[in-house]
């Protein structure tokens, strides 16, 4: 077994988080991952407090294991969903798109472990100072909103910058990625793309097929012009967006308008033309739809085998 502070203090069987992905990470997926021994995470998305509270309650009917909630701090409902978390007390809250400082006091008082996703050492230091239990250092290989650094360069720099545990994320799809993350000094991993193809993931079948059919170079980053770089799988929508993004006559408002609802169109409607299929560079490493339990167990069996074989490299 691979043990770390995540298996010890959070009571996980495997040091793996399932990423909080909008329109993807619902109670059912989170419960499946938690039941499999990882930490399932419900995404609060841009929806209101009522939605999150309902998902938390549903998750508690499906698992008695620890689970988390991810809050997108730019959501207009961020304050409300933060309050729901303080009341409902999930084991972990992860955050993205901003600094969670305004909510830390209430969350810490509720006994929640706050673990922000950070794309830089500066963010990591600031959230450590605010009381974060750990950070998730997410490199640009990941799907969705991304920072500038790769996982391989970001993780060790964040580890050097803070004294709290660091979880690696971005581009991890199998045991090799887990073993590499451990060797970098991470205490565990967060994965998103691999769980898109979990049996318990409720996204449209077209989305899963996009991931399964992806080749290594099939993801593209768009939205840099707006300061919100996003990685997704190429399709007519990304081609149109990329073209407009690089035309000087396109306004920022036009780009924002084009992106509205695109993720929902992918995840719920399976709209191959107009949907935005967020996924990471490791999409091509996902080959089948499997239960979350099989994904996690296979990944960690491979990681354990690799780590046990590591001494063979040193003469």
């Amino acid at each position: 077994m691979i043990n770390s502070i995540l298996t010890g203090e959070l009571g996980l069987a495997y040091p793996i988080f399932q990423g909080g992905m909008a329109w993807v990470s619902d109670a059912q997926l989170a419960a499946a991952v938690s039941n499999a021994g990882g930490l399932g995470i419900i995404s609060a998305m841009n929806l209101n407090a009522g939605y999150l509270r309902e998902q938390i309650k549903k998750c508690r009917t499906l698992t008695d294991k620890p689970f988390g909630v991810n809050i997108m701090l730019m959501s207009p409902f961020a304050g409300d969903v933060a309050q729901v978390c303080a009341e409902e007390r999930p084991a972990v809250v992860t955050t993205g798109a901003g600094l969670p400082n305004a909510y830390m006091k209430d969350w810490l008082a509720a006994g929640i472990r706050v673990i922000p996703v950070v794309p830089s050492t500066a963010m990591a230091k600031l959230v450590e100072r605010a009381g974060a239990f750990a950070v998730i250092a997410e490199g640009g290989e990941s799907g969705g909103h991304i920072g500038d650094l790769s996982t391989l360069t970001l993780v060790p720099q964040v580890i050097d910058a803070v004294n709290i545990p660091v979880i690696a994320a971005g581009g991890i799809a199998d045991g090799r990625g887990v073993a590499a993350a451990i060797m970098l000094g991470a205490v565990g991993v967060q994965c998103g793309t691999v769980f898109l193809c979990a049996s318990e993931c409720n996204i449209h079948e077209n989305y899963k097929q996009k991931v399964l059919n992806a080749k290594d170079i099939d993801t593209i980053v768009t939205g840099k012009r707006l300061g919100h770089a996003v990685r997704s799988i190429r399709n007519p929508f990304t081609r149109k967006y990329a073209r407009m993004e690089y035309e000087s006559t396109t306004t920022g408002e036009e780009l924002e308008e084009l992106g509205v609802g695109a993720l929902r169109k992918a995840a719920v409607d399976g709209d191959l033309e107009n949907g935005c299929f967020l996924a990471g560079q490791c999409s091509a490493m996902v080959h089948e739809i499997r239960p979350a339990k099989a994904i996690i167990e296979t990944m960690f069996a491979e990681a354990e085998s690799l780590l046990k074989g590591a001494p063979a490299w040193v003469k």
């Binding site: 701090l73 798109a97 901003g98 600094l99 794309p119 830089s120 050492t121 500066a122 963010m123 230091k125 600031l126 920072g147």
Partner: peptide
Amino acid sequence: SLDVAELVM
């Protein structure tokens, strides 16, 4: 927020 964090650091 990332830019502000960098500036502060």
